[in-house]
Simulated assay, not measured.
Amino acid sequence: MGTSLRSGVFKKSNDGARLLITTIMGIVFGYFIGVSFPSVSLDKINLPSSLISSLDMAFNDDRRAVSRSFPENLGSSSTPLTPKIYVPTNPRGAESLPPGIVVSESDFYLRRLWGDPREDLRRKPKYLVTFTVGLEQKNNINAAVKKFSEDFQIMLFHYDGRTSEWDQFEWSQRAIHVSVRKQTKWWYAKRFLHPDVVAAYEYIFIWDEDLGVEHFNAEKYIELVKKHGLEISQPGLEPNNGLTWQMTKRRGDREVHKDTEEKPGWCSDPHLPPCAAFVEIMAPVFSREAWRCVWHMIQNDLVHGWGLDFALRRCVDPAHEKIGVVDSQWIVHQVIPSLGNQGESDNGKAPWKGVRDRCKSEWALFQDRLANADKAYFSQIEHR
């Protein structure tokens, strides 16, 4: 029994020794084989040129990718390589970014999905023209759009939700279309025309859909606005068509006017609305700088904009010099209550009556808010 055990142990020891010796000899043999061959490069191997090119491109692409991401990838998670950035003059929320990468403004330029971004734009429109539209007025809008050259970016706000039908017009392919049912142009303007979004445009037209433009030329209009220093303006209105303020009626003997005479008692100061510093909200045109102020005054819930025209003077100074009516480029207000028909009947009232009542109540609300804001501001100043 004891002899058998010793024999087994001895046999296992011999097997282990042979395995160790074999391993050592293999390592030594492999070493001498390796050093006996010269070093080999891809250049000395007769590989197809297309394969070598592919390998080289793949290597270089990887090397460039690593190089681009190199600064962000260095360091451990506990010791980041990039120093902490804080720039208080950056736009709110972007203080942690280096100023050189911050893009705080945008535009409505249409870009390609391919090619070099620097070659996307053949030209950049200088001005923005918006219409709030329903399909029933498509022919009128088509006539209006034709009055604007390629220097004007066209933008349509669709209150009836119908957009594809406009494709019959060639210009519609280049227009910006925004569709939200049963909303007004001031609702759209507040949400889609933020000053930083439209900062690329020198002037912004915010027009109704029921305007006749037979006697209007957009290029000449811009020339006159610049010539007379108007920051907020509108074309003159045909005086014999529809109700309008005296200030906005066209005068046939001049290019531009900035004041008027109204009924006795209507103007406490000849430099204040509605005798001066006043245009209506149906077809206003704003400079980029004036719009930045006006946009902030538009109330989110007061969608009709009534009362806004009397407050526009707060956004330019002196208002009676920088707000005016362009007489020689005039339009006709066709007075089509198309938006009123988007309302709903209430307590037996026709839809348009409900809309009109809302307009009047919004005017009163806006006046109250503005008066209260003034009061709060001046009260705060007095107690400093």
Rank of each mutant, 00 (worst) to 15 (best):
H271I: 00
F59L: 13
K12G: 10
H228Y: 14
N73C: 10
H271Q: 07
E362V: 09
L97S: 11
W363R: 15
L243C: 08
S96R: 11
D62C: 12
L20R: 08
W186P: 05
G265V: 03
F131E: 02
A283G: 05
D62E: 10
F29V: 15
R64L: 12
M155F: 03
F29H: 08
T132F: 13
V145S: 04
V197Q: 10
N140E: 01
C267E: 02
V325L: 03
V213Q: 05
A218R: 01
Q380M: 15
G161I: 02
L42G: 00
S172D: 06
N240C: 06
S328T: 13
E255H: 02
L51S: 06
D61A: 14
I206R: 02
G324N: 03
K353H: 09
Q137S: 15
G30F: 14
H177P: 04
F157R: 06
G115F: 05
Q299L: 06
R314P: 09
T130S: 10
N73M: 13
D253G: 04
V316W: 12
L128W: 01
H296V: 06
W171A: 09
E214C: 07
W266D: 06
E231M: 11
Y377H: 15
R384L: 13
A144E: 03
A143S: 04
I27Y: 10
V355C: 02
K146W: 00
F192Y: 12
F286Y: 08
G236N: 08
Q234R: 01
V87E: 12
A311E: 15
G161S: 06
A17D: 13
R68S: 11
I232K: 01
F70A: 09
K84F: 14
D196C: 03
F192S: 09
Q173H: 15
P125S: 04
L55Y: 10
R92M: 07
F378A: 06
P91I: 10
F32Q: 02
L51K: 07
R313A: 10
R64I: 14
P239L: 14
L5F: 11
Y86V: 00
K182W: 00
Y221E: 15
L272Q: 10
R92Y: 12
V129Y: 01
K226Q: 13
Y201P: 01
P48S: 11
V285C: 05
W114T: 14
C267I: 04
G134V: 13
P351C: 03
V316D: 14
S39A: 14
